[in-house]
């Protein structure tokens, strides 16, 4: 990765995720893939040279031809409104990456995978699910996805497909309102919920690796619940966003 520089990527596909978020597919020159869980930096330059850059988690599989990022329009945001509303297929964007060496999953990891995502924090976890599927990994994988209501679910169709194809144990928790006919609980995840979910991890000679991504407050609560339930803190990797 030595000598990684800003390069000009081209938007080759756009998909709406929610009313305020969409996924951009990027063709990046000399792209050789990424580790599941990594991110890229995206830089925008105005006509007078003014620049702004932000980091976005990759949701693509590590070996996908195109890199995928999902961007939620932040109120008062500077870069995200442009990426959600201003970009069309063919737009060129500068990117740097892939970046990050800790919040990653490698197909050589045989231990069970536990993932907890809050809101748009699902993106790097979907990258892990996709990479897990592509690599033919036998590692048991479970995902707990906390989301306000059905219209805020990212990757809706793929989650169902990946669940079947990767034999993943995927659960969605709606915190405010559930789809019609939903029989599960609705409301924020409690520590007991998280511990009961963690107890479903199949027995293995290797300790599970846990990946938690979401808003800071959510990640704090989920990580604390796992640790209180007996999970070794050193097996829990976290990615937080937003203020505390």
């Amino acid at each position: 990765m030595a000598g990684v520089k800003w390069v000009v990527a081209e938007v080759v596909g756009i998909r709406d995720e929610t009313a305020t978020a969409r996924t951009l597919l990027l063709r990046i020159p000399r792209w050789t893939g990424h580790l599941a869980g990594q991110h890229i930096d995206v830089r925008l330059t105005a006509a007078d040279g003014y620049q702004a850059a932000r980091s976005y988690s990759l949701s693509s599989a590590g070996d996908d031809e195109f890199a995928a990022i999902s961007v939620e329009r932040m109120p008062d945001g500077e870069v995200s409104p442009y990426l959600v509303d201003g970009v069309v297929v063919g737009t060129q964007l500068e990117v740097l990456g892939p970046l990050g060496g800790w919040f990653v999953w490698r197909p050589t990891q045989a231990e069970p995978i536990r993932m907890i995502g809050g809101g748009s924090g699902i993106a790097p976890l979907v990258s892990i699910l996709r990479t897990h599927l592509h690599s033919g990994s036998d590692a048991p994988v479970q995902l707990l996805y906390s989301v306000r209501s059905p219209e805020f679910v990212y990757f809706k169709d793929e989650l169902a497909e990946l669940t079947a194809a990767a034999r993943a144990d995927v659960s969605i928790r709606y915190t405010r309102s559930a789809p019609e006919g939903w029989s599960g609980p609705v409301g924020r995840l409690s520590a007991a919920d998280v511990q009961a979910w963690a107890a479903r991890t199949p027995a293995s000679s290797l300790p599970a690796s846990s990946y938690i991504c979401g808003p800071t407050r959510f990640v704090e609560l989920m990580a604390d619940a796992l640790v209180a339930g007996g999970t070794d803190p050193l097996t829990v990797r976290t990615e937080r966003f937003g203020g505390a």
């Binding site: 830089r43 330059t45 006509a47 003014y50 620049q51 702004a52 737009t91 060129q92």
Partner: peptide
């Protein structure tokens, strides 16, 4: 400076 991003103005917080 990189390529110009068409239509991007920014908030100029970095002044």
């Amino acid at each position: 400076m990189g390529i110009v991003t068409p239509g991007f103005v920014g908030k100029r917080r970095d002044a």
